[in-house]
């Protein structure tokens, strides 16, 4: 018996694919949606262009001797000592990570490995809601509660802001971030590993420390890196509680007040209602912004690399 194929003419196929008007509408919708998607690329380009074009003027016209080894960051007097900002940023980040890493990681271990479902169902949303507390609130808290009650007991001055107070504030802000990324990473570890470990007679704590945490290490690394990037980019806490207003003298002590990269930008923009001042102050804003952008971009790409690694593993 021979199989007879249904002969189909072009006309029949054409009628199956819908009316031309309908097809045209589909094409237009696709184009509009594509336009929305490509907008993010345009924004990325604009950010890089804005930063580069203004920072370039700064880099071209600046007397580079004013950017290194000076007394401090005094943009309105034409002194742009970059190490002042970098050291302050470094200290805020270190203090923030010292506060946030044990708390965030511990909370994640508890939520992922120990908490009973009922407890988890209540505590996790609370922690997530906290992730939404605006940074100005932490700035207020760091200046008016952490400084007198915590920094004063650590040997600092309680009556004003300091790098230490700001760092603790930023740390509190990053706890939910570390907790949520780390918890996701631990949840992604297959239960078979835990069961195998228990089957070998390992205690729960041994399973967690020797099996789950090493298996989730990529995700934990990503959580740390994202937190560092977030801490460096955090502006309001440091601006409000960092203990420096328009300018900062170079200091390597976290007990002093100083300006981080972000706080320097905010104070330049807010000193008067407009960004004005000596010669290159406006451009210096973009120069510092470019530095910050490049550092955080590198950190975020590194974190993405680690996140991709866990996805490949499990």
């Amino acid at each position: 018996m021979t199989v007879t194929h249904m002969p189909h003419s072009d006309a029949e196929l054409g009628s199956l694919s819908g009316s031309p008007r309908r097809l045209r509408r589909e094409a237009i919708i696709k184009q509009v949606l594509f336009g929305a998607a490509i907008f993010s690329v345009v924004v990325s380009f604009l950010i890089v262009y804005a930063l580069l074009s203004e920072a370039w003027i700064f880099m071209r016209d600046i007397d580079w001797s004013t950017t290194w080894g000076q007394i401090g960051w005094f943009p309105r007097r034409g002194i742009y000592d970059v190490p002042t900002l970098l050291v302050a940023t470094f200290w805020v980040t270190i203090v923030a990570m010292v506060v946030a890493t044990p708390l965030g990681l511990g909370a994640a271990v508890y939520l992922a490995e120990y908490a009973r479902p009922g407890v988890r169902k209540i505590l996790k949303p609370i922690l997530e809601i906290l992730a939404g507390i605006p940074s100005v609130v932490l700035g207020f808290f760091a200046l008016l509660w952490i400084a007198p009650n915590v920094v004063a007991n650590l040997g600092g001055e309680g009556g004003r802001g300091s790098i230490l107070a700001a760092g603790i504030g930023v740390g509190i802000l990053t706890i939910p971030l570390i907790a949520s990324i780390s918890e996701d990473a631990m949840k992604a570890v297959p239960d078979a590993l835990r069961e195998a470990s228990a089957g070998m007679g390992a205690r729960k704590v041994t399973t967690v420390l020797r099996v789950v945490l090493p298996a989730a290490i990529s995700g934990l690394a990503a959580a740390m890196i994202v937190a560092v990037s977030r801490a460096m980019g955090e502006t309001m806490v440091v601006f409000m509680a960092g203990g420096a207003a328009d300018a900062a003298i170079f200091t390597s002590s976290p007990y002093d007040g100083s300006l981080t990269m972000t706080a320097a930008m905010a104070s330049l923009a807010s000193g008067t209602d407009n960004v004005v001042g000596e010669g290159l102050t406006f451009q210096s804003l973009f120069f510092v912004g470019l530095l910050l952008f490049l550092i955080t971009l590198a950190l975020n790409m590194l974190a993405n690399f680690f996140v991709r690694r866990i996805r490949e593993q499990y």
Binding site: A50, S229, G233, T235, M265, G289, F293, T296, M301
Partner: peptide, 16 residues
Amino acid sequence: AIRNLSGVPSVVYGLL
């Protein structure tokens, strides 16, 4: 681009 934009510090958006 979207992933990287989500990690850009908010103060940089202010510059934009």
